[in-house]
Design a protein around this nucleic acid. Structure first.
Length: 277
DNA sequence: GTCCCGAGGT
DNA sequence: ACCTCGGGAC
């Protein structure tokens, strides 16, 4: 599928661009496995520009797994707020507790054990191995898909991840996977500013429903209201008060709260809702 | 409207 | 194979 010559030329082009226009991020300036782990959780479906200030503040406040393990959910959400996909914060704290308990606060250098941590899937496990430990293995995310599809799947559509991962393995620089993946991601990000997003031709690609008026928007509103110190869950103030004060329909607030409860973020007793711890 | 260094659940 | 999960920059 990919000849050695193709792989060599592609690597050279990608690394050349990286030398000239590679991006610099705070999580690339550390090899601390816990810091790398935090950054990869934050970066799941979240732009680098949005993550950067949050990451810096987060690591200042919770420098290691032990520091994060004992934080209450209200504090946790307050620090996470703005990153979106708020269940990630809960999973990150749980991963911190597991790492502190079992691994001395250090994410394990083992794919199978990493995958046992909540919030860690195929991408994150291998990204942590590469960026924290220099262990090479093929993995995909949106920028990598863009780069590989643009170069190796001209004119193709609905390119399956299985094929992309085969190519990712063929072009992988096993001597320095850390630099390689920084360069490959930067190349994909660079490409997207010049071409119609090639990752749209990946089978993994999908659009999402509009945010305005969605349940996820309501969930965000409920969490913000909870953290605002408005006293919900106390003095008999509950979902009905929240709905009135947010100017939202009661049923919508109730549905949002129920979703948050299923995700373990809040507890609901009767009409009152509060953070789950 | 489009995008984001995906994961977990069904 | 499908769905849901945030929120802001552009």
């Amino acid at each position: 599928m990919v000849s050695r010559e193709d792989a060599f030329a592609f690597r050279a082009a990608v690394l050349d661009l990286y030398e000239r226009e590679g991006r610099d991020f705070p999580w690339r300036r550390t090899a601390d496995p816990w810091a790398v782990f935090v950054s990869e959780i934050m970066l799941q479906q979240t732009q680098t520009a949005r993550v950067e200030p949050k990451y810096l503040a987060w690591m200042e406040r919770f420098p290691d797994a032990e520091a994060l393990a004992c934080v209450d959910l209200a504090t946790l959400y307050d620090a996470w707020r703005g990153l979106g996909y708020n269940s990630r914060a809960l999973r990150l704290r749980e991963s911190a507790r597991i790492c502190a308990e079992l691994y001395g606060g250090i994410p394990p250098r083992d794919e199978r054990l990493l995958l046992e941590l909540p919030g860690v899937g195929r991408y994150t496990a291998r990204a942590v191995l590469a960026f924290a430990y220099g262990v090479p293995s093929p993995f995909l995310e949106t920028n990598i898909r863009a780069a590989l599809i643009f170069h190796f799947f001209r004119g193709a559509d609905k390119v399956p991840d299985r094929d992309l991962e085969t190519v990712a393995a063929a072009v992988l620089d096993r001597d320095d996977p850390r630099t390689w993946y920084y360069a490959l991601m930067d190349y994909g990000a660079w490409l997207k500013r010049r071409e119609p997003n090639p990752s749209r031709r990946a089978s993994a690609y999908s659009t999402q429903k509009r945010f305005e008026g969605s349940l996820r928007q309501a969930r965000g509103a409920v969490l913000r209201a909870l953290s605002a110190g408005a006293g919900y869950g106390t003095r008999g103030r509950g979902l009905a008060d929240m709905a009135a004060e947010l100017g939202m329909e009661y049923g919508r607030v109730k549905d949002a709260a129920e979703g948050l409860r299923r995700d373990g973020l809040v507890r609901i007793e009767g009409d009152t809702v509060r953070f789950s711890d």
